[in-house]
Design a protein around this nucleic acid. Structure first.
Length: 281
RNA sequence: CACGCGGUGCCCGCCGAA
């Protein structure tokens, strides 16, 4: 049993879903029951690869073995239903899990918030957040980051800022993701000044280092303001800071040139990228 | 019985899809 378990989870970690599944069959045939964690690992793997039907099949098989799914399995499945845009099913699983006596935790609520947020259903995401608070569930760093993002997309800058201050009061320390998200909130609301101010405070935080996403976000903000020179300079600045621009950086810059009507510049950049052998997507 | 180990969630541009 342990040999099978180890083998399957190693294949799983190596991303070899097919091999892992093949060994799961062999294990089944010998009459040894795979345990919850094996199923959990495989369900997650299948789902992460976008193979939602395989994830569902494994979920049903797990139940057929008489194993009760735990919080983590439900959390993964809810996440995948969301990615498959099966919102009612996601909600259904959330209820099912409660009906089985499991108490949704911080991750469960966060996943549900994200299911709606990434589908653009921001009000529903907020609804889940309010329920979560009402239930007295712990709000952690990731939850704060997601909700700041949600308020940003709703262009509810005040609420986003409110959460940003609130989290500190609740002894949750903002990280790079928090700052990047807040920068984007200001970008969406076209508050370039606020963004720049936040970028300065961000650089003064110990343990918070700007990354590619930070710079990409700032470049987009300058692009929106039609300040393509400032956007261009940021690419040099990030490189000076030891951060390598990626495909999104250049794509953002091309968009910045486009918005400013500088099509020649865009063409030149594109050609230079090709000549330099940059890996484009 | 206690503790520990293996499985779950967050940020950026464009394009495509419905």
């Amino acid at each position: 049993k342990y040999t099978f378990s180890t083998l399957i989870s190693q294949f799983g970690k190596a991303g070899k879903l097919d091999d892992a599944l093949a060994w799961l069959e062999k294990m089944d045939h010998t009459g040894i029951t795979p345990d919850l964690i094996i199923f959990s690992t495989l369900i997650d793997l299948a789902g992460k690869r976008g193979n939602f039907s395989k994830a569902m099949a494994l979920f049903h098989r797990l139940k057929a073995h008489g194993i009760c799914p735990d919080l983590i399995v439900y959390n993964s499945m809810i996440n995948f239903f969301g990615k498959a845009r099966l919102f009612n099913e996601a909600r259904g699983l959330f209820s099912e899990m409660k009906a089985h006596g499991l108490i949704p935790d911080t991750v469960s609520y966060s996943i549900l918030i994200n299911v709606f947020a990434e589908a653009g259903k921001f009000e529903e995401a907020e609804d889940v957040f309010l329920t979560m608070k009402g239930e007295g569930c712990l709000i952690d760093l990731t939850t704060f980051n997601m909700m700041i993002n949600v308020y940003g997309k709703l262009e509810m800058v005040k609420e986003a800022e409110h959460l940003f201050w609130n989290m500190t009061e609740m002894r949750v320390t903002p990280n790079v993701v928090t700052y990047n998200t807040m920068l984007n909130v200001y970008g969406l609301a076209r508050l370039k000044g606020q963004a720049m101010h936040l970028f300065r405070t961000m650089q003064q935080q110990v343990g918070v280092e700007p990354n590619v996403i930070t710079y990409n976000t700032l470049i987009a903000i300058f692009g929106q303001a039609l300040e393509f020179e400032a956007a261009t300079k940021l690419v040099a600045k990030m490189q000076a800071a030891g951060i390598e621009p990626n495909a999104i950086t250049y794509s953002t810059l091309l968009t910045a040139y486009g918005k400013a009507g500088k099509f020649e510049k865009a063409v030149v950049l594109f050609q230079n990228l090709r000549l330099s052998g940059f890996k484009m997507d």
